[in-house]
Design a protein around this nucleic acid. Structure first.
Lengths: 119, 119
DNA sequence: CTGACAGGTAGGAAAAATCCTACGTATAGT
DNA sequence: ACTATACGTAGGATTTTTCCTACCTGTCAG
């Protein structure tokens, strides 16, 4: 079994954790950082945090390079294009929605200005 | 404490399952369907599948409407805008990647030696 | 070489997700 | 009213995720 393994599988799984999404945000906003620099932000034992880094690494969302005795973790945004591609066919659905056909959604309704800059 | 619950939290969690992503794809490509129409595609007991539908419902990614004695499930793509918004700040990173400027990451990094004085 | 530091790995407990069978409820058809 | 259909929910077993405490290796400073 397990014939194929779509690339977005591990990506979605990695992004399912708020901790790992926060790691990506920190790497994006503050640049590459060593493990302890990142781990200090989270209320969790360091080995537990290392596990999160491993998940991100295996999803290809971060890379590491050794600098002295520490490993600098860096954001690898490339795989996120898969997420973008996954999302694409759904875009026309929420656009149709916003042009006001069947408007029974209005979950938050304030997302009218989310698509003014694309690709 | 549980201060707030970002809207993308349940969305990412819901999308973490290949089964649930496949449900969204089916609803997108084939339109609204009753539960048994969808469940037939998956090798799983129907109540287990209902659980997946519940997760999608609570994430706001599908809606249901009663039609006779069956419930038509329909794609609700609106919440996916949150995913798109989450993705946006990462886009410039993979663009820079393609232009081969990985070092730009460290430009904004300024954290190459912050580990010198960490607790 | 020795000690201190950075960080990965191992093994296991606890929590959560996933799946099942059994049962409950609402509707349609007779 | 009675039965069959279309689902949801309850309770529980199993698997997976998450987190912990050791423990190990590699590197820098002296």
């Amino acid at each position: 079994m397990a014939v194929i393994d779509p690339p977005e599988d591990r990506i979605f799984a990695a992004l399912a954790s708020p901790v790992r999404r926060e790691v990506l945000r920190l790497l994006r906003e503050e640049g590459a950082q060593p493990v302890l620099g990142l781990a200090g932000r989270f209320d969790m034992a360091r080995p537990s945090f290392s596990e999160h880094l491993r998940v991100l690494r295996e999803a290809g969302l971060v890379s590491e390079r050794k600098v002295g005795r520490q490993r600098l973790y860096q954001l690898e945004a490339g795989p996120l294009t898969h997420l973008r591609e996954w999302l694409t066919p759904y875009e026309r659905f929420w656009r149709e929605k916003l042009t006001g056909l069947r408007d029974l959604l209005d979950d938050m309704g304030d997302t009218l200005d989310t698509d003014r800059e694309n690709t």
